[in-house]
């Protein structure tokens, strides 16, 4: 399992990385933690002639919480997401989701930027970022632009990012109210059979806003506007949850694979979505 040969580059800043991408075009790819890319290269499912390792790019490693906004540098590892007290305080759903990714060794290396940029429907952060209505900053040769997480994913491994762009940061408003990221997996370290992130707010006895997004239940992450709408104005009781779950399940399009047939995935999705809503409500 040795990948094909490549040229290795280790720039020390974003400008250096961008110039390597411009020079080598399609033949170049950035390497973050490598825990999606290296397995693909070992299987020769990805071939890369110029590998641009971002490990020395310090400007991509910050976590900041200021003015009601969370900003994560692309190279922040899943381990750092879990360890950050600031983040646990501002957006505990991120820690809850990160803890359900892979295992400790993978989380020391795997980055939040790599996880959202990758485009694998199995990755957990894209669904989470859709739930949080995050924005991704893409930097390219002609400057930078922002793309909403909910508009970023086109198909499995196809995203709004151009080949010569680097995803530099992820930002979202500090979520208010209750939250939950629920994931069904076959074993520790597995990708989701079904996973769901929910944030919702409560005033008095009623839900005033809700966001529901799912992982690995279509070839892209799915944010269900209808499921959120079904919860707003209700007491999130059994009837409301049932309606919201039905709306969310209507928005998914799971494929049969080694995690089970479509009917099974729809069944599991329904249970996981229901649990995520109830747990978020209990914390609101």
């Amino acid at each position: 399992m040795i990948p094909a040969a490549f040229e290795y580059h280790r720039p020390s800043d974003v400008a250096g990385a961008l110039s390597l991408l411009s020079t080598h075009g399609d033949d170049a790819r950035v390497l973050a933690g490598g825990h999606s890319l290296i397995p693909m290269m070992k299987l020769r499912m990805a071939s890369v002639e110029h590998l641009v390792d971002l490990q020395d790019v310090a400007e991509l490693k910050g976590i900041s919480v200021a003015d009601g906004h969370v900003t994560l540098g692309a190279m922040v590892t899943q381990h750092s997401l879990i360890e950050s007290a600031e983040l646990a305080e501002a957006a505990p759903i991120v820690r809850e989701a990160a803890l359900q990714i892979a295992d400790p060794q993978v989380r020391y290396m795997g980055t939040v930027g790599g996880n959202v940029a990758n485009g694998d429907p199995g990755n957990d952060m894209p669904g989470l970022m859709q739930c949080l209505d995050a924005r991704f900053t893409l930097q390219g040769p002609n400057g930078s632009r922002e793309v909403a997480a909910r508009a970023y994913y086109e198909a499995a491994y196809f995203t709004a990012r151009a080949d010569d762009e680097i995803l530099t940061q992820i930002s979202f408003a500090v979520p208010v109210g209750g939250y939950a990221y629920e994931k069904q997996k076959r074993k520790v370290g597995d990708y989701a059979t079904a996973a769901c992130g929910v944030v919702l707010a409560k005033e008095g006895a009623l839900c005033t806003s809700a966001s529901v997004a799912m992982t690995n239940l279509a070839d892209v992450p799915v944010w269900s506007e209808a499921a959120g709408a079904a919860l707003v104005g209700t007491d999130c009781g059994p009837e409301a949850v049932k309606t919201a779950v039905a709306a969310a399940v209507a928005d998914i399009d799971p494929a049969e694979d080694n995690r089970g047939p479509v009917a099974f995935k729809r069944h599991v999705a329904g249970i996981i979505i229901g649990r995520a809503i109830s747990r978020a409500w209990s914390r609101a």
């Binding site: 390497l31 400790p104 060794q105 290396m109």
Partner: peptide, 14 residues
């Protein structure tokens, strides 16, 4: 960091 050394390139470890 604890890492799985089968998933790290020699170049990354320089």
């Amino acid at each position: 960091m604890s890492v799985k050394s089968c998933t790290v390139f020699a170049a990354q470890a320089d």
